[in-house]
């Protein structure tokens, strides 16, 4: 290997991007034999190390997250809508950690479909969270959040007891236009993702040891918007 070739490959070698084993061996042999190239390699390591250790990493200021997630009410309607979609995008991007086609999603979609086919959507039919939330008391060993999302365009219809796999779950039913959204609440894995399976969209997240999984034939952006509204609404 010539010095010229060696110098061209130093960067990829340093960055772990030189995958050709023979090339790596040749390069390492050359580095051992050639003081000039070897010194260039030391300099390269120093420059890269200096950038990594000394250059500031600018983390997003808290007000930026707030600006995206919770715009002021005084904002004009357009800005309000834009900021809402921005918030949804950030949530969506975080949620877009790709699924393995795992069993959980399969179970959730199956439960969703079953609830529609059996026409057994409700054990308690009410648009009031003050009726639906207390109804679960004594029936489960946890208490699901039941936010009022009618203001965000997702009216509550009611709730029922269900199972996800072998886990007891609360199912909350919301509506968007003609689309039913089932939110399954159960003690499950901590996760944060969006998924799509058999024509249904899922948005899943975890709060306080509970897994929340929204399943619907609603389109993904609107379901993510729903998930965001649900999470913001759960705090009060």
């Amino acid at each position: 290997m010539t010095c010229r070739q060696c110098l061209q490959l130093l960067g990829p070698y340093h960055d772990g991007e030189l995958t050709d084993v023979e090339r790596v061996v040749e390069l390492e042999e050359h580095l051992e034999a050639c003081p000039d190239c070897s010194r260039r390699f030391e300099e390269l390591k120093a420059v890269s190390g200096a950038a990594r250790q000394q250059a500031p990493y600018y983390t997003a200021p808290p007000e930026l997250a707030r600006r995206i997630a919770a715009p002021r009410r005084s904002a004009t309607p357009w800005r309000w809508a834009a900021a809402l979609t921005a918030a949804a995008a950030i949530v969506a991007i975080a949620l877009l950690i790709r699924q393995g086609q795992n069993r959980l999603s399969g179970d959730l979609v199956a439960d969703h479909v079953r609830s529609l086919q059996a026409r057994h959507l409700f054990d308690v039919a009410s648009s009031s969270r003050h009726t639906v939330k207390p109804w679960f008391q004594g029936k489960l060993d946890f208490s699901p959040s039941v936010p009022d999302l009618s203001g965000a365009g997702f009216p509550l219809l009611g709730g029922r007891l269900d199972n996800v796999g072998d886990r007891p779950a609360a199912a909350l039913v919301y509506m968007r236009a003609r689309h039913v959204i089932n939110v399954f609440v159960f003690r499950g894995p901590s996760l944060e993702r969006a998924d799509r399976l058999d024509g249904f969209n899922l948005a899943e997240w975890s709060t306080e040891g509970l897994t929340y999984a929204a399943v619907s034939d609603l389109n993904q952006p609107e379901l993510v918007q729903f998930a965001h509204a649900f999470r913001s609404g759960s705090s009060d």
């Binding site: 600018y58 997003a60 200021p61 007000e63 930026l64 600006r67 995206i68 834009a82 900021a83 979609t85 921005a86 918030a87 949804a88 995008a89 950030i90 969506a92 991007i93 993904q220 952006p221 993510v224």
Partner: peptide, 18 residues
């Protein structure tokens, strides 16, 4: 400028999510 650009980007990202 960085904050404005990120906010604008997140709106674009949302529109292009599909």
């Amino acid at each position: 400028d960085a904050q404005d650009a990120v906010q604008e980007s997140s709106i674009r990202a949302y529109e292009a999510l599909h």
